[in-house]
Design a protein around this nucleic acid. Structure first.
Lengths: 206, 206
DNA sequence: CGATTCAGTGAACGCGCGTACACCGAAACT
DNA sequence: AGTTTCGGTGTACGCGCGTTCACTGAATCG
């Protein structure tokens, strides 16, 4: 026996998820058909139902998967803070690296964030808000923010997240154009530095 | 004669554009069918072809329309600079006002920017780049940026545009929740002020 | 006023869609 | 060894889709 039954099933499930991620890359999950996915995977359309109730429930699984990638990015950025590298250079490099490695996950989030079904949109919005909160607590540990109000920390965090979401989207749009990506990365670093200069000179109202 | 022929045609064309904007609000243009639009307008499906070649070319027209709204926003912001109002307060108020008045146009841009067909995406990406250029030339006229490099002006412009695009998206998501919107507006103003503090303390590398 | 233009009509087409259902055969269980 | 489970198959259905084509009738033109 080369493969157990659960192994086979899991393999097919993975193939479905991967095929769906790839196929909806040029449009959106709402424009994806069950039959397209089945054909790409190499199973008959009805076989799809052995793994998911519908395209929508497949989408919810993709949301979970993609958020796992996003959290891995945050974890790596946080772990890097202790190192000797420059915070800006290191963080941007990690961002770029993760976007490359989990390209389809980040593209999925970027797309469904605005184009997905309302439930998916709301879930993503909420997760991004959690990211802002996490980043805010990290920022509180930075020198120069000791007398900041919690609100201002959250606001600064939101600013940084907005800018980095935009950077991730630009990197995705610049696929296979290394010279364009290099410019984007340089821009991202400069933007982060501008924001940090603003932060260092900021005084929260008391 | 109550109506000339070109008037009738233009009226139907408008009805098609409006119906398409409304119908794709819950998903995306790629999930929109010619027949849905025709039914909503009250014409037979084939009548659609008297006005557009395809849904895609309809989408490109919507891009044009929507960016007319966005440029109107930029124009109003620019005109407001001369007034006595605070730049940040005034600009954000104008942004909010325009997003409310042309809600469906801004929602269209936000959605199709990431989820549209490649041609539509590319058209939007290009238009936003033009907006960044415009803003960069405006920033060059501000006091304190006289010795900035052109690259840094563009980068700052990109940062502001990213943040304001995010704000517009949040306002759209907070529809019918005035208290949430008030928070978003306050956040936007603070973010803009943080960025300006950063800009005032920035020195371009020579 | 007769000829022409053209926005909108309506029937017909082939296709891909989601889904129902009966079926198969090998792995898993007892 | 006999039975059950279940991932995957194949057929068939009705529906909505984009697109074709020949048409109508009122506004426009010469």
């Amino acid at each position: 026996m080369t493969q157990t039954r659960v192994e086979r099933k899991e393999r097919t499930r993975r193939a479905i998820l991967d095929a769906a991620l790839e196929l909806c890359e040029d449009s959106s999950l709402v424009a994806l058909s069950l039959r397209q996915v089945a054909k790409e995977v190499g199973i008959v359309p009805t076989g799809f139902y052995r793994h998911f109730d519908s395209i929508e429930s497949l989408g919810l699984s993709l949301v979970d998967e993609s958020f796992a990638s996003l959290r891995a990015l945050l974890r790596d950025v946080r772990r890097d803070q202790g190192s000797t590298t420059d915070i800006v250079d290191g963080s941007v490099s990690i961002l770029v690296d993760h976007v490359h490695r989990q390209r389809s996950h980040f593209a999925f989030i970027a797309r469904e964030r605005t184009a997905g079904q309302p439930a998916v949109r709301e879930a993503i919005r909420h997760e991004i808000e959690l990211c802002e909160r996490e980043l805010a607590t990290d920022l509180a540990r930075l020198p120069g923010t000791t007398d900041w109000s919690p609100e201002d920390l959250r606001i600064l965090s939101g600013l940084i997240v907005s800018a980095m979401v935009a950077v991730a989207e630009e990197i995705l749009a610049a696929a296979q154009r290394p010279e364009a990506e290099k410019q984007i990365v340089e821009k991202a670093r400069t933007q982060l530095r501008m924001v940090l200069v603003g932060a260092l000179n900021w005084r929260s109202r008391t």
